[in-house]
Design a protein around this nucleic acid. Structure first.
Lengths: 220, 220
DNA sequence: CGCTAAATAGTACGTGTGTACTAAATTAGT
DNA sequence: ACTAATTTAGTACACACGTACTATTTAGCG
């Protein structure tokens, strides 16, 4: 029978402690990776005792869940803010989204946090579900722009084009992110992305997307 | 004073054991992630004792190093084979590379191994160096094609376009890989990528790449 | 004030970890 | 067939881990 604890952080003191905990956990995740993330280290980083940490997060999994939620919320808040200031013109809107996301990759937190999340999602159901939700939300404004730029595409095709654009930008993380070899070229990469995505979104046809090709590759 | 052991796997028996070890380690890395990878689990998976495992890999880091080398060699071997059967026509060559890489993402091993590698590279110097080398080699044939498709670009610009194409494809891993939500659309994603990259490689200009844009985003 | 609940610290237990070490078994060469 | 090198198994240790549990301190409220 599990010992039930509250620790919902109702008082201001509690909320502050939770922030200390989440920041400590995030720092460790980013600086040392998930394999080095432990309850004891988090407690030390938050300058509280292990017992107190357990008061708020009875299990490590509870902490991880909240850590992922919290970290992703920070990104989504910024992203939503960008959306509110959006232009009606689909080209300008798309340009601003691309610029925002690609340049955000240079943020040290983003550079290391997201690869950890992707790796986690391969083995943790919650991380996997969270990823789906986050990127689905990122794709919404992309789909809006694409639909306007290329009305001939079906809904499913618009979704796939948006998925391509979104995943394409994520892939740059490991190369142009903070501390990475090509970090100096991040603006030029954003330029290439913008030019490439805009032209593609405008010119791609249903036939381009749907045609079947012989593979010749072996799936193990 | 460290106990010095050989375990270089000189005899056939030794080489077989090393393969058992590497396969076991790889399976655990892929199925459970790096945080769950332990010497004991590897030994059990390889059906040998911990002592024997230590004979070949005195430290866990030694094992990780060899595991990364071995896993990446498997991919590079396939990639080199593709290169040898390459067409002279830059468009066809580029098409075949894109199709190979994107469809390879559907391979369960690739889907989970690479995100682990990317996360590792953020905290492990060896993984980081290895990644640089691998992707540099992948970019070489891409650069060849781009140079032919668009001779007006400078060497640096060709490199950046190749980097964009390569990283763009890697980004699809988390979305169209094995077991992922969009896995069914992997061929269509390959089509979009092919169409998009080819048009971009042909039409992009130096000005597109180099122009400066106001950012307005904050880098923490 | 006093009292109740929230918050914090401290301790302890069982388990898993990396790795050092020793000894037995197997293999290969002369 | 003997011998030396290689390979294998087994044991042990110190430490870090997640977590359960208890006791103490602090804060809010009548």
């Amino acid at each position: 029978m599990r010992n039930i604890r509250k620790g919902t952080g109702e008082s201001r003191r509690g909320k502050e402690t939770i922030l200390l905990i989440l920041n400590s956990a995030k720092t460790i995740l980013i600086e040392q990776g998930y394999s080095k993330l432990s309850m004891r280290k988090v407690a030390v980083g938050a300058q509280i005792s292990v017992g107190n940490l357990q008061y708020y997060y009875p299990s490590k999994n509870d902490l991880l869940k909240d850590l992922l939620d919290h970290s992703i919320d920070e990104f989504m808040d910024e992203f939503e803010r960008l959306r509110l200031g959006a232009n009606n013109d689909p080209e300008l809107h798309l340009r601003s989204i691309i610029n925002f996301i690609v340049l955000d990759l240079g943020n040290p937190t983003t550079t290391t946090f997201y690869p950890e999340l992707w790796a986690l999602a391969n083995h943790d159901e919650y991380a996997d579900k969270l990823m789906d939700e986050v990127y689905a939300r990122v794709r919404i404004p992309l789909e809006d722009c694409i639909k306007q730029l290329n009305p001939a595409l079906s809904v499913e095709q618009v979704q796939k084009v948006a998925l391509f654009i979104s995943s394409s930008m994520e892939g740059m993380t490991m190369f142009v992110g903070h501390g990475k070899v090509w970090n100096d070229s991040i603006q030029q990469m954003a330029n290439i992305a913008t030019m490439s995505f805009l032209a593609m979104a405008r010119n791609i046809t249903s036939e381009d997307i749907e045609k079947e090709i012989q593979t010749g590759s072996s799936h193990n």
